[in-house]
Simulated scan of single mutants.
Amino acid sequence: MQTKSHNFLDIRGVVKTYRNPRGQDLVVLDGIDLTVGETEYVSIVGHSGCGKSTLLKLVAGLEQPTEGSLTLEGKPIRKPGAERMMVFQQYSLLPWLTVRDNIQLAVDEVLKTKSRQERRQITEEHIRLVHLEAAADKYPDQISGGMKQRVGIARALAIRPKLLLMDEPFGALDALTRRRLQEEVLGIWETHRQAVIMITHDVDEAVYMSDRIVLMSNGPKARIAEILNVNLPRPRPSRHDLREMKTYHELRNHALDFLERSYKS
Rank of each mutant, 00 (worst) to 15 (best):
E183Y: 03
I32H: 11
Q104E: 13
R150A: 07
E125M: 01
G51N: 12
V59H: 11
Q182L: 05
T39S: 13
Y18I: 08
A136D: 05
Q149S: 03
V230C: 08
M209T: 12
L228Y: 09
E124K: 07
G74H: 03
T3M: 13
V59T: 10
S144P: 09
D25S: 15
A60E: 04
E250K: 12
R212K: 15
T3H: 14
E205F: 05
D30R: 12
A225V: 03
F8M: 04
L163S: 12
P220R: 09
Y208H: 00
P80A: 11
N7A: 13
I11T: 11
E125G: 03
P237D: 14
L132F: 06
H6N: 12
D33A: 00
A195N: 13
V36C: 07
H6S: 15
D204H: 12
H131P: 05
S48L: 00
L165H: 14
V14E: 08
T35Y: 03
R212C: 07
S262V: 10
P80E: 09
L132G: 03
L232T: 07
M166D: 05
H254V: 04
S262K: 15
L181Q: 05
A134E: 15
T98I: 10
Y41E: 10
E250T: 11
M1V: 13
V45A: 01
V203Q: 01
A225L: 00
K114Q: 11
A175N: 06
T247H: 00
L242I: 00
I199R: 07
E244P: 06
K57M: 09
L176Q: 10
Q24Y: 15
P95M: 14
P80I: 02
I32K: 02
T3A: 15
R19C: 09
L163W: 04
L251Q: 00
D211L: 01
L97V: 06
K246F: 01
G187L: 07
D204C: 08
E190P: 07
L181C: 04
V27E: 14
F258R: 04
I143H: 09
G219L: 02
R128P: 04
K138G: 00
I213N: 12
V203P: 01
V230Q: 00
V110E: 11
R243H: 13
D257Q: 14
G171T: 07
R120P: 03
V214P: 00
R119M: 02
E250W: 10
V207Y: 00
R12K: 09
E244T: 13
Q194A: 12
E184H: 00
A158Q: 03
N20L: 00
T66G: 04
L186V: 15
N253H: 14
I224M: 08
K162Q: 13
T191L: 10
E168L: 03
H249F: 15
D174W: 08
Y91S: 05
G171F: 01
I224G: 04
V196H: 11
R84K: 09
T54I: 01
H47E: 08
V99F: 09
H47I: 06
E190F: 10
H240T: 11
V28M: 09
T113S: 14
G171S: 02
A136F: 06
E184L: 15
V99W: 10
E125H: 09
T113E: 12
E83T: 14
R19T: 15
S238D: 02
R236E: 03
G68V: 13
Y139A: 05
H126C: 08
L34Q: 07
T35L: 04
P80R: 03
T123H: 02
